[in-house]
Computed example of a mutant assay.
Amino acid sequence: MAPAALRSKTKAAGKPTSKAKPKAVLQFPTLDFERSFLSSGARLLAGVDEVGRGALAGPVSVGIAVVNLEDHELLEGVRDSKLLKPEDRDRLEPLVREWALASAVGHASSEEIDRIGIIAALRLAGTRAWFEILAGGVTPDVVLLDGSHNWLSPEVQASLFDPAPGGLGCDAPVHTRVKADMSCLSVAAASVLAKVARDRIMVDLHSEAPAYGWNVNKGYATPSHRDVIRLQGPSAYHRTSWHLTGPGDD
């Protein structure tokens, strides 16, 4: 039997040593997934993303960035807009517009959200951006939409005997991809465009109703924003069909 000291040394030698965790590698989106559509004959792809869907005030905004799948180069520094500092988004926004073959941002107001609901308002904002792209002489072959729900295509007719939808929506094939804004450069670029455009709208609206702090919270449901709504009530730019002060308070 080995001496106690030797047994102790042997046990210690066999103990696994702790290793420092490797640093996370910053992954930037690419056009790899977008280029998979080349095999189906697509050449022009429109990346689409929305911002403001969960806000209490202001519009919902939809950005579109069109790329040529055959020869578009990458744009350094672009990521999902939520992962970028405001100053970086502002710096990148004109670069994205120059980089994209075509780009646009459409909006649906808080009044429209209250009147038709958030999904229809997303479709309305997306349609406005889509028609702006078409008006510029660019017709994408395919659309890549962030998320799992296709809110951009026209509403499906209930039956062949019902009238067609009222001209809203994108008439190109729409493909959805969860977290596309994290991995697909066209969608990340669209998110930057939409975020910058909507933030500027909220800063402008702040001058009309400074108490709500929209220059900081951009209309989202921060505790201080809800507190002001409780004290002063909603403004003309709030989505009054929503639970503005929190569940159970209104």
Rank of each mutant, 00 (worst) to 15 (best):
L75V: 11
V187Y: 00
P247T: 10
L44F: 14
A189K: 07
K218H: 05
K179I: 09
V178I: 13
L75Y: 12
K218P: 03
N217L: 03
A46D: 02
D181I: 07
A108Q: 02
A189L: 08
L83G: 03
A65T: 07
A108G: 11
A125Q: 07
I113Y: 03
C184S: 14
K85H: 15
D49A: 09
W214H: 03
E70D: 12
A65R: 01
L122R: 08
A164C: 08
E73W: 07
R7A: 14
A158R: 07
L193V: 13
H72L: 12
A129H: 04
L69Q: 15
I119M: 14
W99H: 12
S224C: 07
V51F: 03
A55T: 01
P154T: 07
A100T: 01
G233D: 06
E98G: 12
V48D: 04
A20P: 10
T17L: 08
G77K: 05
V51S: 01
R200M: 09
A46K: 10
E112N: 12
E111W: 10
S36I: 05
I113H: 02
G147I: 06
D181Q: 06
V48K: 00
G41Q: 13
I133T: 01
A135R: 14
R198N: 09
E132T: 09
Y212I: 03
L92G: 15
G47M: 00
L185S: 01
L144I: 07
V156Q: 09
Y220P: 03
P29V: 02
P3R: 13
G137Q: 09
D227G: 06
E208M: 15
L75P: 04
R91G: 12
V196R: 00
V96K: 00
D227W: 05
D181W: 00
A104W: 11
N215L: 07
R200G: 12
P16L: 10
E132P: 05
V142M: 04
S8I: 05
V142E: 09
H107T: 11
A57I: 06
G147T: 06
S224Y: 08
D114Y: 08
G137I: 08
S186D: 13
S235Y: 09
P140H: 05
I201V: 15
L56Y: 10
L74M: 15
F28D: 01
A102E: 03
K218Y: 08
A104S: 14
K9Q: 11
D249C: 10
P86E: 14
D71N: 10
L84D: 01
L152K: 01
G14A: 07
A172Q: 15
A236F: 08
V196W: 00
L95S: 07
A42M: 00
S148W: 02
P29N: 03
R97Y: 10
R230K: 10
G137W: 06
A120K: 14
R43I: 12
T240R: 11
E112A: 15
G117T: 13
A180P: 01
M182R: 09
E70Q: 12
A24V: 06
Y220T: 11
T245D: 14
